[in-house]
Each structure stands twice: as C-alpha cells, then as structure tokens.
Computed example of a mutant assay.
Amino acid sequence: MGTWGSGNFENDTSADHLSEVIDRLVGEVADAMAGDPVELEPDEYRGNAVPCDLELLYVLTRAGYGAQRLPAPEVIEGWKDHFMAVWERSIDGLGPSEGFKERRRAVLVRTFDQVAEVAEEAQQAATRG
C-alpha cells in the first residue's frame, strides 16, 4: 500500500475507496437518467437523489478528487435536459408555493451546470496532458 501523506485520501486504499464512491454516484445518476422518467419527478426518490448525487460529485471534484471520473460535459448537459424536461412537466401538479418553482429551477440548473463545468475543466486538462 502506498502512502504519500497524512490526509484521509492520501493512500492507495482510501484513494481506491474514493474512486468507488465517485463511480457509484455517477452510476446512480446514469441509471436514473436511463430509467423510467416517472422516477425523476420532483416527488419521487430519484427526482431528489439525482441532484444530491450531483452536488456531492461537485463538492468532491472541487476539493480536488475524481474530476477525471466524471462523464463528458455533453453527457451531463443531456442529463440536465432530460431531468429538467421531466421536472417542468410535473412540478405544477404538485402545487408548489409561490416562488418555489423559480427558486428550485435555478438551483437544479446550477447543480447540473456546475458539474458540467468541472467535467469540462477535467476534459481540457486531460487534452493538455
């Protein structure tokens, strides 16, 4: 086992564990996007878990961990388009309070966009070598 520092992620075992966590989060989002769109509605589990998974990915990657494990920015943009289409066609049926829909939409769009931005930066860094 290699250890290169005293940090929580500065050895082979913890780095492997972190990679598995990131891959699991990406996989859960990918599975949700490929599944039944009803599961992405705002009152369904995956409709809430997907933004949480994306936020966790953003926090981890901004902390310097695993950005290279993200899918291509175009994939994330496709996820956003799909997710937001489901959200837009189902949110009104839930009777959101005044202003909630606009605030929540902004948070959701920002969540997808920030992960896509990190993925774009990682892709550019990889091409620079």
Rank of each mutant, 00 (worst) to 15 (best):
V86C: 07
V86K: 03
W87P: 04
W87S: 06
E88G: 03
R89T: 11
S90D: 08
S90R: 10
S90P: 04
I91S: 10
I91A: 10
I91P: 07
I91H: 06
I91C: 05
D92K: 10
D92Q: 07
G93L: 11
L94T: 10
L94S: 11
G95H: 07
G95V: 02
P96I: 00
S97F: 00
S97Y: 00
E98P: 00
E98F: 00
E98Y: 00
G99R: 05
G99N: 13
F100M: 04
F100L: 09
K101H: 08
E102V: 09
E102H: 02
R103H: 13
R103W: 14
R104N: 08
R105K: 15
R105D: 12
R105W: 13
L108D: 04
V109D: 08
R110W: 15
R110P: 02
T111C: 14
T111Y: 07
F112L: 12
F112K: 02
F112I: 09
D113E: 15
D113T: 12
D113A: 15
A116D: 11
A116H: 11
A116S: 11
A116R: 08
A116T: 06
E117G: 07
E117K: 09
V118W: 03
V118R: 12
A119G: 01
A119D: 01
E120T: 13
E120L: 12
A122D: 01
A122P: 00
A122W: 00
Q123G: 02
Q123I: 00
Q123R: 13
Q124N: 12
Q124V: 12
A125M: 02
A126F: 02
A126W: 00
T127C: 03
R128V: 08
R128H: 07
R128L: 14
R128C: 01
R128I: 08
R128T: 05
